[in-house]
Simulated assay, not measured.
Amino acid sequence: MWAAVAVTTATFLGMEFVAWFMHKYVLHGALWFLHRSHHVRHPHHFERNDFFFLFYGALSMAGIMYGSDEKSWPFWVGIGIAAYGTVYFFVHDVLIHGRLRFWRKSSNKYLRALNMAHKMHHKTTGRDGSQEFGMLWVSPKYLELARRKPAPVRVADKQVSTSSPL
């Protein structure tokens, strides 16, 4: 059991480096023609960049299927990739980009720092000049900014009185 937890955890953590490397050198490189759709505004629900989910999903599923009989290491690698993909979906697509409307803002300093870093990444709409290519690792400068800058208050969180004090 401990080996399974270790392999799954190592895969999950290793996927952050894989995601950073692929994002910086492949998506902003040879596969920019697919990733570009993620850097420009568009009226569509889906973008060409979404095809990368299929690639990582297939990799995860292959590991799970190949190692499922004995629950060998490929199974747990597949589980680690799937876990990373799940967290990626909720943090990147739901929280940061608001592709589903149930989780829009967070008062958590780490998540706000992550959002700030990602906004800096999207400041450029071209292939070159971006920064902050990771998904879960945040540069310390954004953590410091999130620590100093208070969380935005949503209108629904404020108690607005419509009655007169008289």
Rank of each mutant, 00 (worst) to 15 (best):
S68W: 15
E70S: 05
W20F: 12
W103T: 08
G67W: 01
G67A: 07
A62W: 08
D69Y: 14
K119E: 14
F75T: 00
F12P: 05
D50E: 11
T11Q: 07
S107E: 09
L54N: 07
G98M: 11
M1K: 06
M65W: 15
T86F: 07
S130F: 00
L59G: 14
E47Y: 12
A19P: 03
S68T: 08
V155M: 11
A30Q: 09
F89Q: 11
N115C: 03
V26E: 10
V87K: 00
A62N: 01
R154Q: 09
R154H: 01
H42E: 02
S107R: 08
R127M: 13
M15T: 03
H92K: 04
A6T: 14
H38A: 12
L34C: 08
K105F: 15
A82Q: 06
V153I: 15
K71T: 02
W76N: 00
N115L: 05
W73N: 03
H45A: 13
I96F: 13
G129E: 14
A19Y: 09
K71F: 12
L166V: 04
V91L: 12
S37Q: 07
W137Q: 03
L59T: 04
G14L: 08
L114P: 00
S161T: 13
R99C: 06
V26S: 10
F89A: 03
F17A: 11
V155H: 14
I79R: 03
F133C: 02
W32R: 02
H28W: 05
A151L: 10
F12H: 02
P74Y: 15
W103G: 12
N49A: 10
D50A: 10
A151V: 04
W103D: 05
A58F: 08
L166K: 14
L114M: 13
F102Y: 10
D128F: 11
L13E: 00
H92I: 02
H39P: 09
G129K: 01
F33N: 10
P74N: 15
A113W: 00
G126A: 06
R154G: 14
P165G: 04
Q159L: 14
P43A: 15
V153F: 10
W2V: 08
D69G: 07
K158S: 07
A6W: 13
V40L: 06
K158Q: 11
L54G: 13
M1E: 15
P140Y: 02
F89H: 08
M135P: 00
H92S: 05
I64P: 01
H39C: 02
A4Q: 13
Y66C: 04
F46K: 07
R148C: 09
I64S: 01
N108D: 15
E144S: 04
H44T: 12
F46Y: 10
G85C: 12
F17K: 02
F75L: 09
A83Y: 02
F21Q: 03
Y25A: 04
K24L: 06
